[in-house]
Structures are given as C-alpha cells and as structure tokens.
C-alpha cells in the first residue's frame, strides 16, 4: 500500500483584537513609551494592566503608571529563537518586577549570553522604534541606560493586530493515500467496508458506521448521479470558479455515499436532481496526488435517474 502521504500546510491570519477599557489605555501608553499597571482588589499593582482581579473577579479600573525599569526574578535561556519571538538571536526570557509594580511581567532580555543574566539583575525596557500600541512596542529589556524620554501623545489605541502563522506537516490516512496514488494514475478507486459492505469514496480510515477501515478496492468509471445541488451566486474568499455555478451532491456509480463536486458544461439553471453526469479530468500533465485531478463533472448523454434510485442518498 506504501507509506501514507504527507505534505506541509500553513495556516496564517492577522487577528484583529479589540481592546476595551483597560487594555486600550495600556496599549495606548505603550505607544507613548509608558507602562501602565492596574491596581488589584488587594491594593497590589499588576503590570502589565489586567482586566479582572484573580481573587475577587472584580473589574480593575484604576490604572497606575509604573517604571520601565525593573528587576529580574527568574530567567531561562532561549538558544535558538522561534519565529515571532522578540529577538532573532539567543536571548533570555525573564520574569521582571517593574519598579512600582507588585507582580512581575514576562518578557525577553537581550543579554547576549547566559553568563550575562542573573536573578536580581536590573533591566530597562528597550522600546521599538515604531510603536503601534502593542506589547511588541517593548522590543525587549536590556541593561539600564539613559532614562526614557516620554513619547509623544498618540490617539487612543482601540485595536491590535496579531498575525498568527503556523506550519504543520499534514498526513493522509493509508486508505486516502491509496486513493490519491490511484488518482495520480488517472484512476478513481473507492474502497468497501468489510463490515457493512458499503463502498466509500474517498475511502476511510474508519467506516463511519462500523468503526473499521475500508479495505477492498473498487475501481470506478466516474459516471454519477446528481442527488441534489445548489447554485452558487455569491463570491467568497478562496473561490476558484466564477459564480454562478452549480455545487452538487453526486453519487458516483458503484459507491454508496454522495460526494460534493462542481457541475459545469451546461447552464446552471439546467442542472436537475437525478441528472446523470461524468467526471472531467484535468489534462494529464496537471495530475498530482490530488482529488483536484478531476476538474468537474459534466452532463452525460443519458436520461435522468428516477427519484427512487437516489432518494436514500438525500
């Protein structure tokens, strides 16, 4: 059967976060090179400002400015930074108790090497050159230097944008891999569940009614019946076909389950429930290990299937 197929996958989105009455002023202050804490129900100052007290759960509304200098309470060393971390060279993560605060914050310290950092060390925020009202406005902490010049006042910050990009190695199941390898050879191959004998396209790592993998391969010709459909008139992100077009639930002959596919080759308003269709493959040079090798289905020159023949697939 061969090894299961794998391929890289990236997910990426710039999240837009609204800040509200506590984090908004906190981020605004950062853009002005100032750090705000919030006073907890017990009178302690927490910097960065937090929205709710961890003991009383009361909203914390009193904001208090603290210093941008502080003391390292604990640290760890990051020899090989990950994407997105504050520094792209080795650095320390540290819990830093800012002067004027009662509880520490987590941030990076640009220490160069682990020999240059210790608990009790004094540090000062190093501000990013361009500040937008984000925790990243503090580039990192470092040995204290000149006192900060207060930054210019900015318009209140109400939103922050946070890009999140993650990479994964995606794996296909053994059954799906066999199906994909057949597709790369121009063959459409389903598998039968050994328990209920239903034929699944694509094949399954577990038959969803029996909980066992599908096994016996069933070669298909690619003719099919439209069971039901919709006409897509709306554009949306990632769309590959210009609307209007038909997106249909079809049952490929020899299988026992509908799949969703595109119907082209006739005006959208001529597609019918029960219409017979056939697979249209992309040109062979475009084939890969992909279900997209079948570009779409088109009307077959056959009479419509009677309703009773596909009603149990609706």
């Amino acid at each position: 059967m061969g090894m299961p197929l794998q391929a890289p996958m990236e997910i990426s989105f710039d999240y837009t976060r609204s800040l509200g009455p506590v984090l908004g002023p906190f981020m605004t202050a950062l853009a002005e090179r100032r750090i705000l804490g919030s006073r907890g129900s017990d009178g302690r100052v927490h910097a960065p400002a937090i929205e709710y007290d961890p003991v009383t759960f009361e909203p914390l509304t009193e904001l208090v400015e603290v210093a941008s200098t502080g003391t390292v309470l604990s640290w760890s060393w990051m020899p090989d930074p990950f994407d997105g971390q504050p520094l792209d060279r080795p650095f320390a993560w540290a819990l830093i108790l800012l002067d004027g605060a009662d509880t520490p914050m987590l941030h990076a310290v640009d220490a160069g090497s682990p020999e240059n950092i210790s608990t009790g060390m004094r540090v000062q925020a190093r501000w990013a050159a361009a500040r937008t009202g984000s925790i990243r406005d503090i580039e990192c902490f470092a040995e204290p230097g000149e006192p900060d010049e207060p930054g210019e006042r900015v318009e209140p910050v109400t939103m922050v944008t946070t890009p999140i990009r993650l990479r994964y190695q995606h794996s296909a199941s053994p059954q799906e891999s066999a199906y994909l390898r057949a597709l790369a050879e121009g063959r459409l191959v389903a598998q039968r569940c050994p328990a209920c004998t239903k034929v699944y396209l694509p094949p399954r790592g577990a038959c969803p009614t029996c909980g066992v993998p599908t096994e016996e391969e069933v070669e298909l010709t690619g003719t099919a019946t439209v069971t039901t459909f919709c006409i897509v008139n709306v554009p949306f992100p990632g769309q590959r076909t210009k609307p209007p077009y038909v997106y249909a639930s079809i049952v490929v002959d020899g299988t026992d389950i509908p799949m969703l596919h595109l119907i082209l080759g006739c005006p959208a308003d001529e597609v019918r429930m029960g219409m017979r269709v056939e697979a249209v493959w992309k040109p062979q040079e475009q084939w890969g290990m992909s279900p997209e090798n079948i570009d779409h289905f088109r009307p077959a020159d056959e009479p419509d299937a009677p309703f009773e023949s596909y009603a149990h697939h609706l």
Binding site: R17, L23, M105, L106, A108, T162
Partner: peptide, 9 residues
C-alpha cells in the same frame, strides 16, 4: 492573546 502570546513564549 493581548499581553503575552504576541511574544510567542
């Protein structure tokens, strides 16, 4: 997601 995760600790 506001105060810590953007640093990717």
């Amino acid at each position: 997601p506001y105060l810590v995760a953007p640093l990717w600790p």
